[in-house]
Amino acid sequence: MSGALFIFSINLTLALVMAAGFFAVARFDAQNTAARWMALAFLLGGLSVAAEFIISADIFVTLARMTTATAFLAAMLGVTVALSRYYNTAQDWASLSVIFVASAMLYALTLDMPRNDPVRQVLYQLPYALVSLLALSHVWRSKCRAVLDWCLMVLLLLAAVVFIGKSIIANMVGGVGSEAQDYARTVYAMISQSSGAILVLMVGMLILIMLARETAARLIRQSERDSATGFLNRNGFMNHGDALLRQLGNGGASEAALILAALDVNIENDARSTRILPFAGLLHALDPPELCIGRLGPAQFAILMPETNLLGARKTAEALRRKIAEAENSPGVFVTASFGITEKERGDALSDMILRADWALEEARHAGGNCVRLSARSALGLARPKAIS
């Protein structure tokens, strides 16, 4: 086995391993469509390498040559589609079809040209270079400028340069072989395949890391959400609420208010859709949209309102209470709700605000429900006077 054939074997193995990795991500996260396209791209890349073995064996050489060229081009187009899905950029399928058909026709026209003709070598590599730049354009248009995005753009630009420069490298090291079957025995084949494998592996691993990170982030977001209402669950609300308070403190804007809202009813499993979801719909309609809203219990919700004081929060709570009371005329849809409100004090954590708002909520319940109560300042204490017997 020649050195180039050994590298072919390595490249084929790498393509299959990378395809399996992307398929695993896609299997684990059905929403990650980019992973499925990357898996398909590496399978097509493996097909391109497998066709090189057929050429070396002098079997169906013309068909195998076309398969090698078009399969690798299709693999690169698959990477382009994957990046468009990952970066959520527009992709014109008609343009991709034209690129593939035109390139296939170009490859067919160059089959009978002298293999060491520099013009033929440039024409052969030109579609690969252009598709590399097309893939780069998706990253650039997304306006994402994190470290991994810059690394990916550099690698795609490097790939385009390498494809264009291959004709120069081939002439420097003795050509690509007078016949297609001779390619595997040339020095150029070893250089081209080994450098290409390194570059493809770097691009593939980088995209795999990005897609796996996206999947992990999506799973974390899902674990922080209440499936019934779409709001944050208790853990998610505590994490995001604390982060929001820290952000307000760092920006110098210390005002924030917290509303605890609870329906005045024991929620049973069969009543959730008719009572909780309409109430959640009212919360979804709140303005501004940057409010941090969480479902802390079966019938209890929390609304953290940045840059809002106690009176502003009370206005919001009263508006919600009236809407719920008005909807009471619809049998089985709504019940009344109680509200407890507090505002951020110096040095407060979210847990401190929740403690005072919960005290105010209990006051509203003790008053018979369907009302809004404000919490006492922390310096005044939260103890209730004992009833006189």
Rank of each mutant, 00 (worst) to 15 (best):
G3M: 14
G3Y: 14
F28Q: 09
F28Y: 06
T33V: 12
G45R: 03
A50C: 07
E52S: 09
T62R: 15
T62E: 13
L63K: 01
R65Q: 14
M66K: 07
S84Y: 13
W93F: 12
W93R: 15
A102K: 11
A108E: 08
L111C: 10
P114M: 08
P118C: 11
Y124D: 05
Q125R: 04
V131E: 11
L134W: 14
S137G: 06
V147G: 04
M153Y: 06
G165M: 11
M172E: 12
G175Q: 11
G177T: 12
S178I: 09
V187R: 02
A189W: 06
M202Q: 11
V203F: 04
G204S: 08
L206Q: 10
L206A: 12
L208Q: 00
A216M: 15
A217M: 12
I220M: 10
S223A: 15
G230N: 05
M238W: 06
H240V: 15
L245S: 03
Q247H: 09
S254N: 06
A257I: 01
D264T: 02
A271G: 02
F279D: 02
P289K: 07
P289L: 10
M305E: 03
G312W: 01
R314Q: 13
E326R: 06
A337F: 00
F339V: 07
G340M: 02
S351L: 08
M353D: 04
R356V: 04
D358P: 00
A367Y: 06
C371D: 05
S375K: 00
S375Y: 03
